[in-house]
Each structure stands twice: as C-alpha cells, then as structure tokens.
Amino acid sequence: MSEHDTSTDTCYLHPDRPALLRCSRCERPICGDDAIEAPVGYQCRQCASGGQRVRRLGDLFVRPLVSQTLVGVIAVLFLLTQADRSTVLGTFGLVPAAAGVEPWRLVTSAFLHANLMHVAFNGLLLWRLGEMLEPVLGHLRFGALYLAGLAGGSLGVVGLAWLTASTPLAEIPLLGWVFATSPFGVTIGASGAVFGLMGAAMAGMRARGVDPWRTDVGSLVLLNLVITFLLPGISVGGHLGGLLGGFVAGKLLFVEASRARSAAVRTAGLAVVVLLATMLLF
C-alpha cells in the first residue's frame, strides 16, 4: 500500500488549510505553518510543545563565564596594584601569622601576583582549565570548585607555617629546605586555586575510568610539581594544598546533573569550613 496522500486532507488545527505533511509523532495532517522541525521529521505544535525541547548544537556548550571573569579580575587587579605594590601586598597578601586576626588575607591573596610572568602563567592555566571544566560542571559547581582549591591552598600555606613554628621541621635536612615556611612571609597568587582545578580534572577522569597520569592533565600536574619543588620562592604548601583540595572537591562535584546544585552547596560549605579551620591554626 502506498504512503497516505495528504493532498486531500486538511490541517487538523486549521481546517480551512490543506495539509502538506503529517506529524511524525501523532501522524495527524498539518499545514506548513503548524509544522515544527524535530530531531526526526516534523511535529505539530501540540506534540512539539509536549515533547522534549529541541536543542541546537550551540545550546549544548556552556561558555566558561566564571573562569573568564576570574582571569579578567586578576588581570585588572594586577594592573591597578602596580602603583603601590608593597602596601597592597602587605595589606592583602597571605601572612600565616596574621590569618587569625585578618582572615580576608586567605582569599584576597589569591587575586594578587608578583610580576607579569606570574600573573600570565596563572591566568593562562586558569583560562585553559576553565574551558575544560566549566562546560562540564556548569557555572555554580565550577565556582564552588575554585573556592575549594583556593581554600586548600590557603590551608597548605598556613599549615606548613604552623608546622615550621611548632616543630623542628626547619632543622631537618632537605625536608626543612623544601617545606619550611616562615609564619611572617607573604604568599600571593592564584596557584593554589589553579592546582585545585588540576586536581578536580584528575578526579573527574578517575571517575570515568581514565588514568589521569596517561593524559595531558597528568603531564601538566607532574610538570608543575617538578617546578614547585625545584624552583625557589614557590609556595609548596599552597600548591599541594590546592591540588588536594581540588581533588576532594572533584570527587564531590562530578555527579549526575540531578544533584549538581546540592554538590555545589556541599563543596562551597566544605571550602568555608576549611577557611575557618585555617584561621584557627594561628
């Protein structure tokens, strides 16, 4: 039997108009004005409104607005603070001994940088990792992840300074040279939060059954760890704390979309708890 001829039918929504085709869902005749393009064929307006929304390819991509905004803020602050850099660093840089009485330093220090190479390197990594993670996590979870990496980095800096002041860590050969941190030194930079993004990327890969050490992310982590331990003047505690904080946050955040908001709230809450605990260390 041949396919039904719609030339003698009228549109069931507009009986005064001839039907040009049939709805691919309910198979009722429809005119051209009532034909809505669907993933397969055309649907009438009633079926299209009740079915799954048709999404364009561009709708599937989440623009990394949070990471791009963070890069912009960091760049602007770097330019604005060059006129009186010593005063700004002394007021907003992370000084472990002052973390308990001036807690804003735990956060503001992550938005300040020492020189052009410092801000360019962190900004580039933040931009690239944001392009990788934010479309997957969404804006809310990515923001919570960044806060968790920042908190982990601050805890690492203050924690090593506390160990240096409370134990003979500084007197131990090699370990003291690598890990000892002055309680009165100033630490700045977004490296802790950026390391947190790398840690979360590794957690996400492991959750999907991928060995992160065999990927570009694993190579990036190894390279940055080598730089951390070999070059002087780099915050070992900030980098390791951020990496660990991001990995733990990634384990919480890479869940199905139905729990995305609750995972973001739990992660942000954990980051706040870490910041409060860091204040109490000194």
Score class of each variant (00 low, 15 high):
6 T>A: 09
9 D>V: 01
10 T>E: 04
20 L>V: 10
26 C>Q: 00
26 C>W: 00
30 I>G: 00
31 C>E: 01
32 G>A: 14
39 P>I: 10
40 V>Q: 15
40 V>A: 15
41 G>S: 07
43 Q>I: 00
46 Q>K: 01
48 A>W: 11
49 S>W: 00
50 G>F: 02
50 G>Q: 08
51 G>V: 03
54 V>A: 14
60 L>N: 14
64 P>F: 07
66 V>K: 06
66 V>E: 09
73 V>W: 07
74 I>C: 15
76 V>N: 06
80 L>V: 06
80 L>G: 02
80 L>A: 09
82 Q>I: 07
84 D>P: 08
91 T>Y: 00
92 F>A: 01
101 V>G: 15
111 F>Q: 02
113 H>E: 02
114 A>T: 12
118 H>Y: 05
122 N>I: 06
122 N>L: 07
123 G>I: 00
127 W>L: 07
134 E>W: 08
134 E>T: 03
135 P>V: 01
136 V>P: 08
137 L>P: 02
139 H>I: 03
140 L>H: 12
142 F>E: 07
143 G>A: 06
148 A>N: 03
150 L>G: 06
152 G>M: 01
153 G>S: 04
155 L>K: 04
156 G>E: 02
159 G>V: 02
166 S>Y: 14
167 T>Q: 06
168 P>C: 06
169 L>D: 05
171 E>P: 12
174 L>I: 14
175 L>N: 08
177 W>F: 15
178 V>N: 13
178 V>Q: 11
180 A>L: 05
183 P>E: 08
186 V>I: 15
186 V>Y: 12
188 I>V: 15
201 A>N: 04
202 M>K: 08
202 M>P: 10
202 M>F: 14
202 M>R: 09
209 G>T: 08
216 D>G: 15
219 S>P: 12
220 L>S: 12
221 V>F: 11
222 L>F: 14
224 N>Y: 14
233 G>N: 12
233 G>C: 13
233 G>A: 06
234 I>D: 10
236 V>M: 12
239 H>A: 15
240 L>F: 11
244 L>Q: 10
247 F>A: 07
248 V>D: 09
248 V>E: 13
249 A>T: 08
254 F>R: 05
259 R>F: 08
262 S>V: 14
263 A>D: 01
267 T>Y: 03
267 T>K: 04
268 A>F: 05
268 A>E: 07
269 G>V: 04
270 L>C: 10
276 L>T: 06
276 L>K: 03
277 A>W: 13
281 L>M: 06
